[in-house]
Design a protein around this nucleic acid. Structure first.
Length: 590
RNA sequence: GGUCCUGUAGUUCAAUGGAUAGAAUAGAAGUUUCCUAAACUUUAGAUCCAAGUUCGAUUCUUGGCAGGACCA
């Protein structure tokens, strides 16, 4: 039980016996005491004043005295300042916390709760390589999965590959027109980049043909549709749906090139999935959903054969669920897949890591599923995240401002190499050890950077400044870890009994370490890795202050030395686990 | 036009309605005979505007202004 929970319960008990009426922990607030005051945790009294009919000082004194008399092992003193009751927690409690946990590598993790959750993330299109936005998505998905595991869930990671449709046909048409039989192998190009180049070529050619038609007096929109290359693409889409062998063959070949490329990227950034769904297998799933909706009168069929749902009563529009030509739209496919996941894995929650541009779509998806009464409806949860923008605004492929994922990873690793070489601390590393170290630092910096911001907010990425390695960053945390490990390699633990009082910078570590379990719970409930990033940064900072303040190896007594070694060890465990929750590693030396 | 999201130091980000709005970075000034200076210490600097709700509002409500997304 966390110290805050203990204090809450103690306050409820004291209030109840002092004032002879029932109270709950909702009646008051407990905060961490601000550093300028004496105490560890603070009971805010204002909300209780009316109920008990006392002044802040009267209530605070009565409550403070009662709390300490009845919990003298736990709380040692109190003071009241302007309606805030500051409570000091005994050193004994903090020391015990440290001595019982300092070697527990699972410290902070919650026991299994028996629930299953699926996290769907990444979900790429197969017509171009991954970019910065996909990285935020991938890191978020991975991290949320790790956090939910630590919170006690059984987690399945899934990915839906958008492998069919007009976008991939565009790349295919352009390849037929311009490639002259070239392949990734023949051009020594990574497969996803190779296919992406033809997507760009398509757009260039389409633009050129459209301009030609516009010059003959055709309206822009019409010209875009009538451009020969676009007509060819539409024909190819129909051929694909009809299963025309040579089209299917080309489609499979080009997709396999893209997958080869994605595999490399996923391996580099450390992403994987328990289950991959392909849209080419799921895009027909909507059909029975439509039948179900019609039979329940949730959907209505119009004269032209198209099927709609009326959501105006919920403040939304009428929404198309089946086109007049009988093809289903994304929303019906998605409901079908939601149900399939639910049936296959028996999940209690289904989380979709998808950008906030899809907020409306996801809202409609859940609403329709609810109206249909399908079992999976309530499990649907959209983890909506903001776009990554550049200082100049949105990334635009037309203007060539898209930050490529592979390029960025390579750049981060090169930067970590440069910093490391300048510092010259690891000259005795082998070549393999160095390669690994650059990876750990470069990826750690990048993941931390993209996860330290509240997911639902859009964020700005400035490629000019590159990513900082100082301050609120991954390498800061990693460096703190490496410094601790350096000490722990030299100074062994022993079984000296510890019953000392704590200095401020010693106690600060114990206090923040105690919060790890609660921070994991908070991050899991809010699906917010930034809570973890901020927390481990503060843990590292607290340790660094302690480190420059007090000596561990040359402590004033053996007892103090052991205490400080244990504090260091617990800190290291938290930093390593915390970074793992962000999908990042820590180096033993750097 | 409709719906939704976001406006906090020069910049990038924090703050379940609570104490003097925190960090990081950039700026200024310091710290190395001592466990890794990718560190530490000090300093200066901000709530878009206007009302309202109350003991108290960055937070909640309403109306503006600015930016973004989605829907036609």
């Amino acid at each position: 039980m966390s110290i805050v929970t203990k204090l809450q319960k103690a306050v409820v008990n004291s209030l109840t016996s002092l004032y002879n009426k029932p109270f709950t922990d909702k009646d008051f607030q407990i905060n961490q005491t601000k550093p300028e005051f004496v105490g560890d945790y603070t009971v805010v009294l204002f909300s209780l004043l009316k109920n008990v009919g006392k002044s802040p000082d009267e209530l605070g004194n009565a409550l403070g005295i009662h709390l300490i008399e009845n919990n003298n092992e736990l709380f040692t003193s109190f003071n009241i300042i302007k309606g805030f009751l500051n409570i000091e927690v005994s050193d004994k409690f903090w020391v015990e916390l440290v001595t019982t946990n300092y070697q527990d590598v699972c410290y902070g993790k919650h026991p299994l709760n028996g629930k299953k959750v699926m996290v769907e993330y990444s979900s790429p299109n197969t017509n171009k390589p991954l970019h910065l936005g996909h990285l935020r998505n991938n890191f978020l998905g991975w991290s949320v999965a790790e956090i939910l595991k630590a919170y006690g869930y059984k987690v399945f990671k899934s990915c839906i590959v958008n492998d069919r449709g007009v976008h991939i046909c565009k790349s295919m048409i352009a390849w037929q027109l311009f490639a002259n039989g070239a392949t990734p192998q023949s051009t020594a190009t990574k497969g996803d980049h190779f296919v992406g180049e033809y997507y760009v070529k398509f757009n260039d050619e389409h633009k050129r043909q459209t301009a030609e038609l516009v010059a003959t007096g055709i309206a822009q929109k019409e010209a875009e549709k009538q451009a020969p290359i676009m007509l060819a693409t539409q024909q190819m889409l129909q051929d694909w749906e009809a299963g025309k062998p040579e089209v299917m063959q080309l489609w499979q070949t080009m997709n396999s090139w893209v997958y080869d490329g994605f595999d490399v990227t996923y391996k580099n950034i450390g992403s994987d999935f328990d289950k991959t769904y392909y849209e080419s297998n799921t895009y027909l799933l909507g059909k029975e959903i439509v039948q179900l909706g019609l039979s329940k009168n949730v959907f209505t069929k119009k004269e032209d054969g198209s099927v709609w749902i009326d959501l105006t009563a919920d403040g939304l529009d009428e929404k198309l669920v089946l086109r007049k030509d009988g093809t289903s739209v994304y929303i019906t496919q998605d409901i079908g897949l939601a149900q399939q996941k639910y049936d296959e894995y028996g999940i209690d929650e289904s989380i979709y890591v998808i950008g906030d541009e899809q907020n409306y779509h996801m809202k409609v998806l859940k609403l329709i599923a609810q109206k249909l009464g399908v079992a999976s409806a309530e499990a649907i949860h959209h983890l909506s995240y903001g776009m990554v923008e550049l200082p100049s605004g949105k990334m635009k492929s037309r203007e060539g401002t898209v930050v490529d994922a592979d390029d960025l990873v390579a750049e981060m690793i090169a930067t970590s190499r440069k910093h490391t070489e300048e510092l010259g601390k690891v000259n005795d590393f082998t070549a393999d050890e160095l390669t690994d170290l650059y990876n750990v630092i470069g990826l750690g910096a990048m993941k931390f950077y993209l996860l330290r911001v509240d997911p639902k907010k859009k964020m700005v990425f400035n490629p000019e400044e590159s990513i900082d390695f100082h301050g609120f960053t991954g390498p800061f945390v990693q460096y703190t870890y490496a410094r601790i490990k350096s000490i722990l390699r030299k100074e062994p633990f022993n079984d000296t009994a510890i019953s000392t009082t704590l200095l401020k910078s010693e106690k600060d570590i114990a206090v923040i370490a105690e919060q790890f379990i609660a921070v994991i719970a908070e991050a899991a409930k809010e699906l917010d890795p930034s809570k973890i990033a901020m927390y481990i940064f503060n843990v590292a900072k607290t340790f660094n202050t302690f480190y420059s303040d007090l000596s561990i190896a040359k402590a004033e007594s053996e007892e103090k030395k052991q205490l400080r070694l244990q504090l260091a060890s617990l800190t290291a465990i938290i930093l390593k686990s915390g970074m793992q929750l962000l999908g990042a590693r820590v180096p033993e030396r750097m």
